[in-house]
Design a protein around this nucleic acid. Sequence first.
DNA 1: GCGTCCTAATAGTGTTACCAATGAATCGCC
DNA 2: GGCGATTCATTGGTAACACTATTAGGACGC
Lengths: 239, 239
Amino acid sequence: MSAAPDHRTLHNRVLAEVGPAIAAGEYEPGAVLTLDRLAQGYGVSRTVAREAVRVLESMRLVVSRPRTGVRVRPPEEWSVHDPQLIRWRLAGPGRMGQLRSLTELRAAVEPPAAAFAARRATPADREFLVELNGRMVATGRSGDLEAFLRLDIEFHRSILEMSGNEMFAGLTGVVSEVLTGRTEYDLMPRRPRPEALRLHTHVADAIGGGLADVAQAAMRAIVDEVVSALEDEEAADCG
Amino acid sequence: MSAAPDHRTLHNRVLAEVGPAIAAGEYEPGAVLTLDRLAQGYGVSRTVAREAVRVLESMRLVVSRPRTGVRVRPPEEWSVHDPQLIRWRLAGPGRMGQLRSLTELRAAVEPPAAAFAARRATPADREFLVELNGRMVATGRSGDLEAFLRLDIEFHRSILEMSGNEMFAGLTGVVSEVLTGRTEYDLMPRRPRPEALRLHTHVADAIGGGLADVAQAAMRAIVDEVVSALEDEEAADCG
DNA sequence: GCGTCCTAATAGTGTTACCAATGAATCGCC
DNA sequence: GGCGATTCATTGGTAACACTATTAGGACGC
């Protein structure tokens, strides 16, 4: 995973308890957490509780006002793109819904990212990607799913970074969470589908050759397959 | 604009100074800001300086370690999707680059969002969107650019929210900043182009009628036009 | 009744002082 | 010259205090 918070500090430990609780919806919007309750509840000083609240506030999970206390905001107002909040929500219930949202975001961003990468990547980047794809194909055939996951994450992360767009590059954590979550949920076949491997090769070759449209189309085929697989899964769960 | 920070509190006022400075690159990666310097520099107590640092830390702008001080991280590690950081960067130099990144992100997300909206919006939502488009066309013809901007923002925001995907909906602030920044930069024609108005009408009608593919294609035409206009502008600046 | 003003209780906000823990840099030994 | 012990600057954490904003409720007048 990426960007784990530093649990050496007390306020981060408090955050690691309160954050997931709020993200899981254990507090109704409008519920109040006073500083004193937080401090006493977690056995920490007021100062530490305040630092934790400052962070929650910057994520727009709560508002802190005199006399009123620390109020939980409705989920629509949360900073849903915050990596820490994403991790908290993935750890709780509603994980499946979060995974769906993230997958749809990924499906929207990765095809254009591949197109930009085909236009902007350096020669060394292109070479690296083609070589990485070679390793993926080999590992995919060998059936080592864990190693394949690592390579798959690196493949998609590389493309996002080569896109030359920092907003795309900033989604590497999201993609890595989605891919990891997908294997944890057993949404992956026991062995990568040959069709998927072929599409990855198309993407790598197209970026290597600077063919933006081809790269975009191949990447779109990859993510569309992922989205529809997720929809089938949800339909199966409900039916 | 959206989500303005609360300047009533002292730590937010400190943040409003330090944050933009870091975001503008006034501190090299690795530069150290000690708490005492911050506290004395802004005439606040250590506690307040610490609260500000906690927020900067949660945005991954800095790391705070004992003995070392508060170190500025390299820009690649920043949480570039944080709305507050986006605002800080838009306020400084490199604003044009930030606007380009955001526009490309917008171009990636809005077409799929329109498709989802066509599939998921409620009847009331669809009706509202068509009516909103009618007002846009009328205002566009009248030539009131400011009113048109407000409606344009509401149009795109509505679609993102109707997409039923919270990650898309969370980008409303980005879109509003981009649209506002575009008019501030005089990248907008003095009067909305008829072609653009027609495309907006196509999007509204397609979502109204549940035609996901049509909505997506029309939205893609809108954002592609925006991206290429931005590229022309950059080429003109450089040439 | 109903609205307005005043008052008091109740939070968060901000300050100060102090000690503990950390870890980078330096010193000194071999 | 290499390497371990020491030093000490800096953050981490606690406690106690005064200040201030906000709300609730009551008193008052209409």
